[in-house]
Design a protein around this nucleic acid. Structure first.
Lengths: 342, 342
DNA sequence: AGTTTTTATGCAATCGATTGCAGTTATCGA
DNA sequence: TCGATAACTGCAATCGATTGCATAAAAACT
C-alpha cells in the first residue's frame, strides 16, 4: 500500500515551506506563477491528493451538501438529483443523499444525521406527513442555509423552489373541462403538502370559472400508491353518477387508475378522460399516452444547488430571494383527448 | 450563532482532561463507568457533537462509503439504496451516492471524486458501456475495498453480489415456452453487462432444451429506453414470421413494448406473450399486469453494505467470499398467460 | 545611493479528536 | 504493614492544511 503524499512531502521535495505549497495549490495571488506551476506539476507527479479532513477541520467548511428527499425512485427525483450533482461537482461540493421514505420520523433522523455530518447546507423535499419544521431548527441556529424544493413549507429564513402548482392544477382541470368533462374527480396526496394542496386549489378555481359546482366527494386523498387505482375505481363504481374526468396528482398513480378503469370496463378517454402530473417517461409508454404536466426537474436541481452555494459564498443578500418559481407546462396526449382535433 | 462545543469545553467544565472525555465518549474500557455517564450527560447538556473531521484526520478513516450507480430512477435502485442506507446508518457510516448516467466516462469521473473524498469503501453497479475496471485501480492500490452489485465484472480482488441471471432468464423463457410461445424475441441491453449477457444465456438454454432453434435475429440489443418499444414493434412488423413471445430485460421497457404492440394491433398475451424483469411496481399497474422476475433489491443493498463494512473491520478473511448470489423468483401475471389456468 | 513599495515566501499557531506512554490512586495479598 | 497489581486518568504528540504576521528580496522612486 502506497504512502499518502502531503503538502509537507511536496515542500520537502522542492525545498520550500508547506505554507507556500498550500497557497500555490489554492491559487493564492501572493504566489509567483512560476512557483505555482512548479508546485502543481510536482504535486501531480507525486500523486498528491488533498486531505479533505485536515482542510475541513481548519477551514470549518465541509464542502458537503445534504439532500433529503421522500424517495429516489421516481424519474422526477432522479432528474432533480442529476441536476444537483452536476452543479455540486462543478463547485466541488459533495452530496450526501438520503430518503425519508415519506415518513416524518425518518426525516427527523435524516436531518439529525446531516447535522452531525456538518453539511454546509441542506436541500429538502418534505415527506408526506411532515407536520412542522422543528427538526431543522439546529441548522438555522447554526446559520446553515436550508433550501426547500418541490415539497416545501414556507419559512422566512429559507428559500423555496417550486413550480406554480395552482396554475398547473388549473391548466389540467381546464383542459379536461375543455374536452367535455363535467364531473372531474381529483386523486391526490396528503394535503399537508403544498404541491397537492395547491393543485387542488387550481382544480377548484378551474371548476368555479367554468361554473361547475365543487363536489367534495370527488376529491380523494390517497397515498398515491400502487393500489390506489384499484381503490379509486371501486369508489367510482359505487357512485350513482360516475365521473367523466380524472386528474391524478402523479403519473404513476394515474397509470394505475387508467389500468384499473380499463379493467372495470371503462374506456379512456371516451368514458373518462385522464390526466397525470410530472411527465414521467412512463406517461409515454402506456396506452393511451398520458396527458400530464411537464416539470423541469433537472433545472430545479441545478438552481437549488446554485442558489444554495451562492448563499454560502455570501453572494446573495441573505434574504433577497425567498421563493423561486419555475415554469411548468401542460402536455396533452391521448388519455384526455375526446374532441375534434383528432 | 452558537459556539461549537468541543471535548475541551466538556473537559474544562468537569475539570478533567480531554483525553478522558474522548475515551469516555468512545466507550473505552479503561474509563470508570461513573465518569462515563457523567461525561455523557454533560456532553448531551452542552449540545456537544463530535467533529468528524478532526476524528477522521486522526483516525485516517472517513466512515463514508461511496456508491456509484447507473441511474437512480428505478424502483430497483432506490430500493437497493434504501437497504444500503439502513445498514450504513446502523454502523454509523455515511453514503455518498452518484449516478453515472450509464456513461463510462462519467463513471470514471465519479470514481475519481469518490477517491478524492477518501471513501472507506466503494459500492459499484456498472454503466452500460463500461469497458474495463482501470478507473478503480487507485482504490485497490490503496487497499480500499471495492464491491460490485447487480452489474458486476469479475475481479479477483473484490466481491460481487448478484442474482443468478442465467437461471432467471431460463425461467422466464421456459415459462413463455410453456405458455405455447415458439418464436420468442428477446429485447435486452448492452451485452457487455453480465446481467444482460447472462439472461441471454438462460434464454438460449431454455430454447435449446425445448428443441427450439436459436435465431439470432430474434435477439435485439437496445438501450432499453423509452423509444425501444416503438422500435421493436417496427422490427416485428417487418418480419415475415412475427414472434409470439417477448422477453424484455426490464419492466419499463417491457411496458413500452406492450404498449407499442397494442397500438400496432397485436393483443397481449394472445398474439404475443410478454415478460419483463425486476418486478417494478409498474408491472402491477399496467394492463395487462406484467409477468416478471422478482429481484431482492433491499436485501441486496443490505448485504452489500454489511459485507463491505465487515471487510473494513477485518472480520472476513479478505478473499473469503468472492461472489454472493441472491435468490430471485419468477412472478407470473396476465401478460404471459395464454393457457388453461384461467 | 538611500529609502520606500511591492512581491514572495516562511514561521508558527491553530482546527478537534485520538492514543501511546507515564503517572497516580486504590485494591489486594501475604 | 508493605510492595504489587489493577484501575483510572492525564500529558503531549500527532493527523494535514490553513493563515495572520513577519521577513527577505527585488523593484521603484527620489
Amino acid at each position: 500500500m502506497e504512502k499518502e503524499i502531503t503538502i509537507y512531502d511536496i515542500a520537502k521535495q522542492l525545498n520550500i515551506s508547506p505554507a507556500t505549497v498550500s497557497r500555490a495549490l489554492n491559487d493564492h495571488p501572493a504566489i509567483n506563477n512560476t512557483t505555482k506551476s512548479l508546485i502543481a506539476s510536482t504535486a501531480r507527479e507525486m500523486g498528491y491528493r488533498i486531505n479533505p479532513f485536515a482542510s475541513s477541520l481548519r477551514k470549518k467548511r465541509t464542502n458537503t451538501l445534504g439532500v433529503i428527499v421522500p424517495r429516489l425512485n421516481s424519474y422526477f427525483m432522479s432528474t432533480v438529483l442529476a441536476g444537483m450533482e452536476k452543479e455540486a461537482n462543478e463547485a466541488s461540493y459533495n452530496l450526501i443523499i438520503s430518503q425519508s421514505m415519506e415518513s416524518f420520523k425518518k426525516e427527523i433522523t435524516n436531518a439529525r444525521t446531516m447535522f452531525d455530518s456538518r453539511v454546509d447546507g441542506l436541500l429538502v423535499s418534505l415527506a408526506f406527513d411532515t407536520e412542522d419544521l422543528e427538526h431543522f431548527e439546529p441548522f438555522l441556529k447554526r446559520n446553515i442555509p436550508l433550501l426547500f424544493f418541490d415539497r416545501v413549507m414556507s419559512h422566512n429564513q429559507s428559500t423555496s423552489i417550486i413550480i406554480d402548482n395552482v396554475r398547473a392544477g388549473y391548466e389540467v382541470t381546464n383542459h379536461l373541462i375543455s374536452q367535455g368533462s363535467q364531473r372531474i374527480m381529483h386523486v391526490t396526496g396528503s394535503l399537508k403538502r403544498n404541491v397537492y394542496a395547491d393543485r387542488l386549489k387550481g382544480y377548484q378555481q378551474a371548476l368555479s370559472e367554468a361554473g361547475i359546482a365543487y363536489d367534495d366527494s370527488l376529491v380523494k386523498v390517497t397515498d398515491l400508491g400502487m393500489d390506489t387505482g384499484q381503490w379509486v375505481v371501486q369508489q367510482i363504481q359505487e357512485m350513482p353518477l360516475p365521473p367523466d374526468g380524472l386528474f391524478v396528482a402523479n403519473d404513476f398513480c394515474a397509470v394505475s387508475c387508467m389500468s384499473a378503469l380499463k379493467r372495470a370496463g371503462y374506456s379512456v378517454p371516451q368514458d373518462v378522460a385522464v390526466a397525470g402530473f410530472n411527465n414521467d417517461p412512463l406517461s409515454q409508454v402506456v396506452e393511451p399516452n398520458l396527458t400530464t404536466i411537464h416539470y423541469p426537474g433537472y433545472e430545479m436541481g441545478e438552481i437549488a444547488v446554485k442558489s444554495l452555494i451562492s448563499h454560502l459564498n455570501g453572494v446573495s443578500a441573505s434574504h433577497a430571494t425567498n421563493t423561486i418559481i419555475l415554469r411548468s407546462e401542460l402536455i396533452v396526449r391521448e388519455s384526455s383527448l375526446r374532441l375534434s382535433s383528432k
